[in-house]
């Protein structure tokens, strides 16, 4: 057996979590909305931490439709970026230390985004998961679903089309 010994689990986790953190922390608007990401292997779940500034209808009260749309769009872009950066993160071409220094990879740009509002967003945390339907060299299509208490009762869903960043993926390399 010539197979190389697998890396220690801590090394793998540290590399992936640090890269994800650098990617998410680098975007001010993601911090503004209070969005975090939970990672299981390469699968990401967006978490919208509820706070009162997200309210769009104070009488119901309900989460603002714009916040819901933004949460779905952020989850789509991070999931899409994560899937195309994954090989470079794993091979070490991109590392978290570079990203934390502000050498962020180019992110996909939104071309169009269509949101369906299925239920009012309740004043509590929300979750979202995106699926890359097609990842081309120039364009990508992403579907995304958001829910609150119950995974099967979506309160919003969306589909987005994105322009993929063109090489070089990183502006400056060591």
């Amino acid at each position: 057996m010539n197979r190389p010994r697998p890396e220690p689990m801590q090394v793998v986790k540290q590399r992936r979590d640090a890269a994800l953190r650098a990617l998410v922390d680098g975007v001010p608007y993601i911090q503004f909305l209070g969005i975090e990401f939970d990672r299981r292997g390469d699968e990401l779940t967006g978490l919208l931490n509820f706070n009162d500034t997200q309210i769009g209808n104070p009488f119901l009260p309900a989460i603002h439709g714009g916040v819901t749309a933004a949460f779905l769009e952020v989850t789509s872009i991070i999931t899409l970026s994560w899937s195309y950066l994954w090989p470079d993160i794993e091979s070490g071409v991109i590392n978290a230390a570079q990203m934390a220094r502000g050498e962020l990879p180019n992110l996909p740009k939104t071309i169009g985004f269509t949101v369906d509002y299925l239920r009012p967003g309740l004043p509590r945390d929300a979750y979202a998961r995106a699926t890359v339907s097609r990842a081309g060299r120039r364009y990508a299509t992403v579907r995304v679903e958001a829910w609150q208490d119950n995974r099967d009762r979506l309160f919003a869903q969306a589909v987005g089309h994105f322009r993929m960043p063109q090489a070089p993926r990183i502006a400056t390399r060591d």
Partner: peptide, 17 residues
């Protein structure tokens, strides 16, 4: 509200709002 820290461009989500 910046979505692209390199250029300072506002995030699409804020425009959606």
């Amino acid at each position: 509200l910046i979505g692209d820290p390199r250029t300072g461009v506002i995030h699409g989500g804020a425009v959606s709002s």
